[in-house]
Nucleic acid binder design. Structure first.
Length: 145
DNA sequence: GCCAACGTTGGC
DNA sequence: GCCAACGTTGGC
C-alpha cells in the first residue's frame, strides 16, 4: 500500500464536501498537471491519502482512501487527463498545519514542504504515520486495511 | 493582495 | 530544441 496527499482549496472542494459523498466517493477531477496525474496513475485501490486544505487552513484535515484507479477525468476535454476516485475515511481530530509539519524535523523531506505547488503528492509510510500521530489518530487505525 | 516558484506555451 | 513570456498556485 502506498500513501499520498491530495490538496484542495477548501472553498473549491472541502473535506466536508468529500465526506458528504460518503462511501460512493468522488473523482479527484480538475488536475491539469502531468506530475500529479502520473502519481494518480500509480495509485491502487486501498491506498490511503491525506486531505490537505491549501490557502485557507493550510492543514491536513482528513484521511481518504482510493476506491478507483485512474480513469479519464470527466471534466476534461482532453482524454490525456485522468484521475482516481477517493472517499473520506476519517477526520483528523487535530488538524496538522503546515507550520506543524515544518516544525517537525522528521518531516523536512515531505513534498508538501519542498514542492508546495504539487497538488497530488506521495507521502512515505513513516511520514504518514507521524502526521497521523500529530493529528491525534492511531496510525494503525488509519493505515490498516 | 503580493510575489516567488514553477509549469506551459509559442516564437524563433 | 531553446528560452522568454505568460499564467497559475499557494504561502505569506
Amino acid at each position: 500500500m502506498q500513501y499520498w496527499l491530495f490538496k484542495s482549496e477548501p472553498f473549491k472542494w472541502s473535506f466536508e464536501q468529500q465526506k458528504a459523498k460518503g462511501e460512493a466517493g468522488q473523482e479527484w477531477d480538475g488536475v491539469r498537471n502531468y506530475q500529479a496525474r502520473n502519481f494518480m496513475r500509480e495509485m491502487a485501490v486501498g491506498d490511503r491519502g491525506f486531505f490537505y486544505h491549501s490557502n485557507e487552513g493550510k492543514a491536513v484535515v482528513g484521511i481518504v482512501e482510493v476506491i478507483a484507479t485512474a480513469h479519464p477525468d470527466s471534466t476534461a476535454e482532453d482524454a490525456k487527463w485522468e484521475c482516481v476516485d477517493i472517499k473520506a475515511m476519517m477526520d483528523v481530530p487535530k488538524p496538522v498545519t503546515l507550520d506543524d509539519v515544518k516544525a517537525e524535523p522528521r518531516l523536512k523531506d515531505m513534498v508538501l514542504v519542498n514542492n508546495s505547488r504539487l497538488s497530488v503528492q506521495p507521502v512515505t509510510a513513516d511520514e504518514f504515520a507521524l502526521v497521523c500521530e500529530m493529528g491525534g489518530l492511531d496510525p494503525k487505525e488509519a493505515m490498516a486495511s
